[in-house]
């Protein structure tokens, strides 16, 4: 018979190099199938990872309005912003002077008091009450609490000292107390976040 040779050959049609570079159809199907499965697998990972990010209710809870009129010089209040403490402090002239007297070059995280407050309101220091070391709440906002070696805030967990502008001066914390995004909506009201 004429096609005896063809039937004896066990090579299937799609095993034959048919492409211009000798690429078999089966190779193409293998690569395509594994790639599709791989992309699909990675795509499923995204929701699995992303579900751990803050949910909508947590994000919705992320701005705080405050009336700062009642804070007398030398006084501070603790508020809550994003479920974390927020310190709002009215500086006394002596504290402002103390903060301005420090050469910024000598600081670990160089910033002036002007840069850390809003213009026209340099006596109002708004910072997070979260130590930049490992997140403890520093002391110094409430009456009678230790204010540390530099008269600002003191974190009891690992001994970080902040000055009257909330700048890190001593201890393991790497940065100044964070100044959150905030705006004055009137002379006595601020909105944080």
């Amino acid at each position: 018979m004429a096609d005896t040779a063809a039937t004896a050959d066990t090579t299937l049609v799609h095993d034959n190099p048919s492409g211009p570079d000798g690429v078999r159809r089966r190779d193409f199907i293998n690569v395509a199938a594994v790639s599709a499965a791989g992309v699909g697998g990675v795509a499923v990972l995204l929701p699995l990872i992303s579900q751990m990010n803050p949910s909508r209710d947590v994000l919705a809870d992320s701005s705080t309005e405050l009336d700062v009129a009642a804070i007398a010089p030398g006084q501070a209040i603790k508020a809550v912003y994003r479920k974390q403490p927020l310190f709002v402090r009215r500086l006394t002239p002596a504290e402002i002077q103390q903060a301005n007297a420090v050469p910024t070059g000598s600081l670990r995280d160089p910033q002036t008091l002007e840069e850390r407050t809003k213009s026209g309101h340099t006596d109002l220091l708004v910072t997070m009450g979260v130590c930049t070391h490992l997140g403890c709440v520093p002391l110094g906002a409430a009456e009678g609490e230790a204010k540390g070696d530099y008269g600002g805030y003191f974190c009891p967990c690992h001994g970080s000292h902040y000055d009257t502008a909330g700048r890190i001066r001593k201890g393991p914390a790497p940065l100044n107390l964070e100044v959150p995004d905030y705006q004055f909506t009137s002379d006595t009201k601020i909105v944080v976040g």
Partner: peptide
Amino acid sequence: VWLLGGYAPDNA
């Protein structure tokens, strides 16, 4: 934030 599901430890 991803580990905590928020800005501080909470329900999540």
